[in-house]
Design a protein around this nucleic acid. Sequence first.
DNA 1: CACGATAACGCAATCGATTGTTTAATTTTC
DNA 2: GAAAATTAAACAATCGATTGCGTTATCGTG
Lengths: 346, 346
Amino acid sequence: MKKKKSFTIYDLARKLNYSPSTISRALKNHHSISEKTIEIVKKAAEEEGYRPNILAASLRNNQSKTIGVLVTRINRPFSSSLISGIENAASKEGYNILISQSNDLYKNEVASVKALFDSRVCGIIATLGMETENVKHFDQFAKIGVPVVFVDRVPADFESYTVVIDNYTAAFNATNHLIEQGCTRIAHFAGAQHLNVYRGRKKGYVDALIKNGLAVDDSLIITMKSLSAEEGEAATEQLMQTANPPDGIFCSNDTTAVSAILTLKKLGVKIPEEVAVIGFNDDPIASIVEPALSTVSHPAQEMGELCTRRILQHVLKKEGTPKIEERSVLDTHLIIRASSNRKNNP
Amino acid sequence: MKKKKSFTIYDLARKLNYSPSTISRALKNHHSISEKTIEIVKKAAEEEGYRPNILAASLRNNQSKTIGVLVTRINRPFSSSLISGIENAASKEGYNILISQSNDLYKNEVASVKALFDSRVCGIIATLGMETENVKHFDQFAKIGVPVVFVDRVPADFESYTVVIDNYTAAFNATNHLIEQGCTRIAHFAGAQHLNVYRGRKKGYVDALIKNGLAVDDSLIITMKSLSAEEGEAATEQLMQTANPPDGIFCSNDTTAVSAILTLKKLGVKIPEEVAVIGFNDDPIASIVEPALSTVSHPAQEMGELCTRRILQHVLKKEGTPKIEERSVLDTHLIIRASSNRKNNP
DNA sequence: CACGATAACGCAATCGATTGTTTAATTTTC
DNA sequence: GAAAATTAAACAATCGATTGCGTTATCGTG
């Protein structure tokens, strides 16, 4: 049952009395093959249900039409939307995608990168894990000219394409918004500071305070390891127990923000009147929680598509294609919902 | 820069004065190679940073260590958790996964399946799209002995492995629960009836009504094309405008259930007192919406792992491995939250 | 008519790993 | 000590597509 050999260009060649090379060329409209022959070959290929062996072609060309993707966790709204975007753009051009997740473990990340490398991907798209502090496991790609696109969580010191959002400005605007709503003591749930995204968000927060003449109180800045719901709950409780609790919280993600909302409600704190809350990402839960969570949109799908285009452009090196900058910074925008809207703006 | 040829077993052979075949065998501990040689070869391979060319091996063996995965939409809680489970189990055994999404379009599904086939995957895991009514595009795999695992949304008439939940029982229990809570006029948001999952859920609902001596009122059964939030809202509004509105709704997914809750609240209907609601899937939003949504757990991650094990077992055909049944039916359980809890049970 | 140009196609090597079959070397056995 | 058995490693074909180069046929032109 497994014997059924696949139909190859050799079979086609034998059947049509052509050489395999002619078949190969005819199938891809090579200019040195006559129109008539091309038609004959294609028709026969169709009839016989010929399917090219990608592996053989890849081996010969030493590269596959496959893009490697590495995320931290597949089942996270941002990741899955990112992947969705990548896949849509890739399949449109006949490229496949190979997926791997690190589960935020450095060891896994290294192993996955190695596996993707071994799979001879023609490009790789990656977001760094929480534990990742150096990226030399990506060096191997650069060495053989395979493009690397870092997205969202990107390293500072690696020669590669990057696709990110402007975390600083987004955070600045979010914090500024809280201030506009009358908050004067704003807490911040920060993420691991060796990652650009959380560093940028913290800096934006700090600068917004400063610009508005507010004090930066370190006791209001809580840095979390993984920005999980549990951490969000603990931090909220801790903050509210202090003598001088905050009247606003800018959270580095929606998970902790929703967690903060739930905890505040449990504590009988009014949102946004007593404490206004704003998150980051616009996960599905953000619009469902009550009061609905103000947050920063994160164009994950769009970012994914852009990543793919980056890879393809590098691989195809088509002349005349509009040059996309090496580093793309996508726009975000503030989504103001009830959790921070004290003035009943629309 | 792209010239850097990869280091192959031929290079190793030359360096160590062995033949390529010996290198190949040594690297995989073939019994006809001496311990000493194996050690020498492995050490040299390590030193030279030798990495096997998977493409070449795959070509030779005519199959890759790659599992193809086809889902409807990657960025959906169920899909992404499923994929996550698949990936975890696969990478543990050194297998890669190739991902594709159909966006619930039949045309895309066929194209994706074809692409996965061409990629010579060693097995394929798929959930059918909304539009899919026949699965002959999967025949090609059976023909060459590549295992197919359908998961969740599975066809009735295809010789393959399947991994599903017991939709009928889950729905029966969910409906029964609503009845226990005192509901007597229960509506149902049904999905496309050519898909097993939605058929099973509807049947479970109907049978629970019958078993409890309740009338089955067709006007209370609303069949939706895609079970989207919009459809859920429209259906809820429609139902509540009738002379004799329902006092309970069993929804085929959480999206429409949450949508129903939001709509009911907008209409000033008390949940669960006036209308109790229960969903299906246990998406993240289910526990966040207010009142929290009762629902049916869907062990997506676990299902993914099982799918992978199915494939691997088929491929490896290891004797002595405990035989997993061809068709697995995983357990679900009712998660009772506020949206259906009239009696204040814990 | 002959020679160079062009078109259309075939030859054979190549990509790197795998494996059935041989050959060579070593050990065992009587 | 020689034949048989065992062990270790080499040979060469194979997987299927690709491609540089070579070959053959056709055509045009002086």
